[in-house]
Structures are given as structure tokens and as C-alpha cells.
Design a protein around this nucleic acid. Structure first.
Lengths: 342, 342
DNA sequence: ATTCTATGAGTAATCGTTTACTCACAGAAC
DNA sequence: GTTCTGTGAGTAAACGATTACTCATAGAAT
């Protein structure tokens, strides 16, 4: 039960005042080289670690960032969180990660908890905007932009170039020779997903070629069973579909599973393209062609903007768009003869 | 920039002292029903949230738990963390999650950060034991048991019944009629994996049947490329292998990919069984037979034991073993004729 | 010799809570 | 009428850091 040493003990041990110890720790203020050495020695010998609760109380800076995520079980979000954490830890910030399970109510509760913990900033992947009580906390909206976001020097949005992603997907399918396209998504697309959809539609309109048809497949939910059912129905009523754009990788993998079960060769009969470049996309067989959102770049940008706002820098722009790129793997290369299956 | 309200403002608004407000908030001490109502009203009206840094400073209880995990990108660990978080949040505890990327050095640094944050307790999935400076913090070692763990009323180990899991895997393969088995794992198995291996070996010894052979395939690393290469070599030099036990699901999926690429039908030619019951096991095609570690049960047990220790209860046992179970899916059912592929 | 300036370091107030003491008051017991 | 007991609520001292002031000293400038 030996109590942890506090700053007073260090001060005593080094024969200085607590103020001096604090100054040495924070490289803040003046002290002689000799004093510094004595203090550092005392710290090292006693294994002293400053109490961040006390520090946070005094300075209102807790060195803690709250990250709110819809579902950490989704590999893409896990990647995003992983990268965020790395970037923040480098700057000595700890990360409190919260799952909302897509529930707006739970999200409110979690944000209140984060406020209680006096987080220095918040990263929100949510699609909702934060309550007014949080306007004083620097916030980065990541990946999903809330519709009713209130712009302020403490709010910033970072999102992938979803519109262009949708366009790239459409072009790739067309380049593979697909003529009857379908886009497939869960019934309540968020703002980001709508942009992907817009980019896709716009591209088809722009090509303005009579022989190209397109339809939309809307899923009641994202489960494998639902995908199988809905896909079977659609393929039954509209035969000839030869290109599918799935608005997320998870849906793409579910779709691929459904196609494999019905012995539809991919990409020979149907080309398939996802969105996210989830770690699974590359692991799957056949590896999924997809639109890559660069989780590392996005997370690093989010971290730097957030830390900037925390240290009082007004963000240069309220809205950053991270480029996306097509990652061509095995589900769109129009191969000769047989595909990966059958 | 309106400052958050503090307890003094609430006290003023309700016409009582801060002590009374605190007592009402913590259901601690005496106050009349009428006073309580006035205080609650003031709290609700001002959206007051107690400052946990101050509370933690005073009480040494920060309502925060540190969770240290080797790699949150591994779906099984993600599930564990997810469940832990749910269980802890229900009890009003926040969770700081840290990734060690399997680095012992980074782990030390992360633990120091957690100490600085005055966490109330720690959950460690690591294989190493915590440094002595952390002996005062209640700790749950999860999933992987450190070899040199120091038992104390503040240390507890929770692990799956790995030995029995190994046994179940061996029995399942034998029940499928496999006669030439192999177990496949990465070169530095941790304690848990060694136990799985022991259970597997022991079962083969126990059956004591001459016609049953077994070998071990040791991977230099867990990458898909390495699995493919090593597997090809082994299958080349020792033909006839008809049952594979992979010590983790991720290895199992890599193995399955390698087999699919070499057109080996699963389970017709080779039966395959994993360990963990990662969310991917069920998503994959064909769905993977595996030994399920119940992440939900494990996490809930960990949370309750940790919160128990935090509130001063001596744990009943230092070492809890959570049962595992065989989940039979499509990679071991010896089907008639063709398997899922070819 | 006096004043000025720069440097190094200490004093003490402060952050927002909790909680050990203290106390006023009302009713009960004597 | 006095003492005792229980209840409700206030006072003020912590908790461990940071930092605005203050001050002693020494060397430079006058």
C-alpha cells in the first residue's frame, strides 16, 4: 500500500520547492542546469509520475482525448481508431474510446461521461452533431459529416472524398465492360454514403450512353441473411446485372458470399466493387476491389487538427477532404474465361 | 466560452452548501427529501456534470479503467474490448484502451501513462506481468497468463480452458475420420497457445492408436504469404495430411485461403479447425469450425472481478478458467462427395 | 557608490470535489 | 427543567499539481 510519490516528496528529495520541480517537468520557466539535474535524478530514483488528475484540475488540460465510434467491431473503424491512438499517443495524449452501437441515446450518455472526464478534445464518428453543452470542447467530426453541424473555430470536419469515390467505382465497372449496374446499400445511408451514391449516379448520367442501365438495391439491414435474400430477389427479377457497387466493404463481402453460394462466378459474370478498403478486403478470397479510404492519413490529419485546436490554433479550414483511390484487386479484373469460382 | 458550472454554483442556486450537493450526488449522508429535490432541480437546470478530475484527486478513484491489448485490429481482441467496455460502462467506468502492438517496451510506456491517469484498475492482455510499481493497482490478467505472475489480493487471472480446447479440437478431427493430423502455429506461442497444444497432443497420446500420425507446422510469422509457403512445403514433403488444427482463427483463415488457392477441397480432403471463434469465423466461406472462447462471458467476469477488487473485496480465487466449446461449422463436417470448393 | 536588469528559485493561492468535524434544533427520556 | 439522541446541514481542510507574485543575488551600467 505504499502511496505513490507526489511532487512534494520529489521537491524534498532534491532540496528544492515544488514550483521548481513543476518547472523542470514542464520545461517551463527558469532553472539552472545543476538544479535540473538534481530534480531529474530524484524523479528517476523514485519512479515519480505526475498525477494527471491534479494537473488536469489545475490546468483544464487532461491530456485525454475522447473517441466516439459507432462500432469498433467494424474493421474499418478499428483501423481508424488504431491509427488515431498511435498518432495521439505520440503526443502524450491518452484516448478514451467509446462505442455507441449506432445508438444516438447512448452517444449522448457517452459524451456526458467524456465531459465529466474533462477530455481535452473529442473525435466523433457519428453522423450526429454534438450537443450545445459541448461547444467549448475542440471536436473533430470524422468520416461522417453531421447534417446540422454548427461551424465554429472549435469544430472541424474531416471526410474522405466520397463523391469522387463513387465516381471511381462507376468508372471501374464501366471499364470492365459492365453494362447493367446496380448499387447496393443499407436502407438508411448516412451523409457519406449518400455522397458515394451521388458520385456514382452522376458518372452514369455523364456517360449518357443508352445501353447502360442501372438500378439500386436497398437492404433492410446489413446481415448476411438479408443480403442473400435481397440479392436473390433482385437477380431473379432483373437478370443480366453484371456490375455491383457496394457502398461499404462489409456489404461487399456479404454480397460476395451470397454470390459464391449461388455459384455466380466473380468477376466473370458479375464484377464487384466495395468501399473503405477494410483490412478484410485484402484477406478475402478473391481479394476485393474497393475504393480505399486512407485510414492512416485521415487519422493523422484528425489528430493534428485536434491538437492544433487544443493549443488554440484556429483551423485553416473547417472542412478537409481526404483523397480516395481505387484499389484494383480480383473482383473487377475482367478475366478471360472462368473467374475465381466454379 | 461559458465555463462549465461547478458544484459551488449548484449549491448557490439551490441555496445549500457544496457539502450537501455532494452528499445528494453520491447518495451519501443525510438530507431531507425537500433539500434533495431542490438540489436535483438545480443540477438538471444547469446541466451540471461533476468534474471527475477533481473527484479523482480527492478520492483516488477516477472511475477509469485501463485496458492494454496487443492489437485491437485482431477481431477477437476487438470483441473482448467491446464487451469489456460495455460491462464497465454500465458501472459508470470509462475505459482507456491501449495497443501494445506486441511490444514489451511500448507496453511499459503505456502502463506508466495509465498510472499517471490514476486508473482505478487495469485489464492486461499481454503475456507479461506488470512492473512492481503497479502492484498497488487492481489488475486482471486476461486471456494470456504471464509466466512469472506474482499472486496478490490485487492480481487475478482469467483465461479460457485452453487445454480442454486443444482436446476438443483433436477429438473433432478424429471424429471426422482424420488419421494424419497437423497442428499449425506461429513460432512463439504464448502460454495459452502452449496449453492448447498440450491438450491436443495429450489427446492423441491418450487414444493410443497406431494408425494415427501427427506433425507440427511452425510458421515464421502469421502473414498470409508465410502460411502459403510453409503449408505448401509441408504438404509437399508429408502428403496425406487430412486434418489441421490451427491455434488461432486468424491462422486458420490464412490456411484456408492457402488451401483454396491450391484447390484442396475443404473439408473433403482436409478438415480444418481454428480457435477463438472470431467474428470472422462465421463470416467466412465456408464458415470455420472452431473452438469458441466466450468473449462476452470472459469480459463480464473480468469486469466484475476487477470492480470487486477496486471496492476492496478479496477475490475468491486467483485463477478463473472459462469453459470453451466446439462450434461445428462447415470445415469439419465430413460431407459426402465434394466439399465447398472445386 | 548607486541603480538597473536578469536570473534562479520560493510562497501561496487556486482548480472542483469530498468528508471529518461541528453545530443547531427538535423531540424523547428523566 | 435538564439532559440525551438523532437529524439535517454548514465549515473548512485536504487531494497534487500549476503559476502569478515576490524576492535575493550578482553583475552591468551609470
Amino acid at each position: 500500500m505504499s502511496q505513490l510519490p507526489n511532487i512534494r516528496e520529489i521537491a524534498e528529495k532534491a532540496g528544492v520547492s515544488t514550483a521548481t520541480v513543476s518547472r523542470v517537468i514542464n520545461h517551463n520557466g527558469r532553472y539552472s542546469r545543476e538544479t535540473e539535474e538534481r530534480v531529474r535524478k530524484a524523479i528517476a530514483e523514485s519512479g515519480y509520475v505526475p498525477n494527471l488528475a491534479a494537473k488536469g484540475l489545475r490546468t483544464n488540460r487532461t491530456q485525454t482525448i475522447g473517441v466516439v465510434v459507432p462500432n469498433i467491431l467494424n474493421p474499418y473503424f478499428a483501423k481508424l481508431v488504431f491509427e488515431l491512438q498511435n498518432a495521439l499517443f505520440e503526443q502524450k495524449y491518452a484516448t478514451i474510446i467509446c462505442n455507441t452501437n449506432e445508438s444516438a441515446e447512448l452517444e449522448k450518455e457517452l459524451l456526458a461521461t467524456l465531459m465529466a472526464h474533462q477530455v481535452s478534445g473529442v473525435v466523433l464518428i457519428s453522423g450526429h452533431s454534438a450537443p450545445v453543452s459541448m461547444q467549448a470542447v475542440p471536436t473533430v467530426y470524422l468520416d461522417r459529416r453531421p447534417e446540422d453541424i454548427l461551424y465554429s473555430p472549435l469544430n472541424v470536419v474531416i471526410e474522405s472524398d466520397n463523391f469522387n469515390g463513387g465516381r471511381l467505382a462507376a468508372r471501374e465497372l464501366l471499364a470492365c465492360g459492365c453494362r447493367s449496374l446496380a448499387v447496393i446499400y443499407a436502407c438508411k445511408p448516412d451523409v457519406s454514403q449518400k455522397l458515394r451514391l451521388d458520385g456514382f449516379r452522376q458518372t452514369l448520367v455523364d456517360t449518357a450512353r443508352k445501353e447502360i442501365h442501372s438500378t439500386e438495391i436497398i437492404l433492410a439491414d446489413g446481415s448476411a441473411a438479408c443480403i442473400r435474400r435481397t440479392l436473390a430477389e433482385t437477380l431473379g427479377s432483373k437478370p443480366g446485372i453484371d456490375g455491383l457497387f457496394c457502398l461499404t466493404d462489409m456489404i461487399a463481402l456479404g454480397t460476395m458470399g451470397a454470390l459464391q453460394l449461388s455459384h455466380v462466378p466473380v468477376p466473370a459474370d458479375i464484377c464487384l466493387i466495395g468501399f473503405d478498403d477494410s483490412p478484410l478486403a485484402d484477406l478475402w478470397l478473391p481479394p476485393l476491389t474497393t475504393i480505399r479510404q486512407d485510414a492512416g492519413a485521415t487519422a493523422r490529419l484528425a489528430a493534428s487538427q485536434l491538437l492544433g485546436m487544443i493549443s488554440g490554433v484556429r483551423p485553416l479550414q473547417q472542412n478537409s477532404v481526404v483523397p480516395v483511390e481505387l484499389v484494383r484487386r480480383a473482383t473487377t479484373r475482367a478475366t478471360e474465361g472462368k473467374g475465381w469460382f466454379e
